[in-house]
Nucleic acid binder design. Structure first.
Lengths: 148, 148
DNA sequence: TTATATGTTCAAGCTACTTGCCTAAATCTG
DNA sequence: CAGATTTAGGCAAGTAGCTTGAACATATAA
């Protein structure tokens, strides 16, 4: 165990975070979804439960509505999401995952599990739980966004 | 303490990582370096000790040599780095930090310390050290790269 | 000496964003 | 309820940070 050092912590955090993103990307592609990027995954986390509007998605991703609309255009073209009329607001469109979108989401969950598994082997179950708990304690509340 | 769950761990990791990057960016800008982006910081970590060539920097950042050259052009224009003749190879140019580049690096270190400090207050010194240690144990070896 | 590999640069193109403006529908106000 | 304002979304053009392709200078190998 080394001495506490903010820079070493930063390096560890950024390295592991990058490894996670790489692992998810590789696992999702290996499961047959070659045309999705990490940014799509962050969109899925907002769309997954009940769908969202373009504006809500843009706020979640911290981009302009135009950028969110372009992303949705692309995901519609690839078959991952669909636009339908919003039940309460005729101006808005509700964006929801298609069955292909849900399948991709499940692939991402499996890829996460694959990436985390070796960490459990290295640290042991107890310290991995402590890691998870501590990270969630210092994590800011709010939407899950790409690092930049 | 909650039950171990790969997705919760992933959320914690990505959230804290994002918070760190945001904290560094804000702290560096608050110290008067408003024209640097996170990608520049990753370049600085490679240039800091003794400089590097365009090719070495490109490998470190995992971009093309042309992209690395453009980034260096920008950093030269802003006064953070300088190109000089390489001592051993007349084809190559050695890129090194200027005094402004070193000042910015010190600002980033201070910003990291500022960002990490509240985490120490939440977790306590011991668990923060455990967090650092565990992250470094599961971190892949290799250059520190932007998440994507 | 010639051939090949390496370090860098110039030029053009692409992608994921941005800003600026527009229309339609909802909501607020008198 | 009529008019003004706000909000949801789309269209068009511009930009930043990368890419691929090609060229040139220097180093290294045959």
């Amino acid at each position: 165990m080394q001495q506490h050092d903010p820079e070493a912590l930063a390096v560890g955090l950024l390295s592991v975070s990058r490894a996670l993103v790489d692992g998810i990307t590789a696992g999702v592609q290996a499961r047959g979804f070659a045309d999705v990027r990490p940014a799509h995954g962050f969109a899925f986390t907002r769309l997954a439960p009940d769908g969202a509007t373009i504006t809500e998605l843009a706020e979640h991703l911290d981009v302009t509505r135009q950028a969110a609309a372009q992303l949705v255009d692309e995901l519609v073209a690839k078959g991952y999401v669909q636009r339908s009329r919003h039940p309460d607001d005729a101006r808005a469109r509700l964006i929801t995952l298609t069955s292909k979108g849900w399948a991709c989401t499940r692939a991402a969950e499996a890829a996460i599990a694959d990436t985390v598994r070796p960490w459990a082997a290295v640290l042991g179950e107890q310290r991995l739980q402590a890691l998870q708990d501590d990270l969630l304690r210092i994590a800011p509340r709010g939407p899950l966004r790409p690092t930049w």
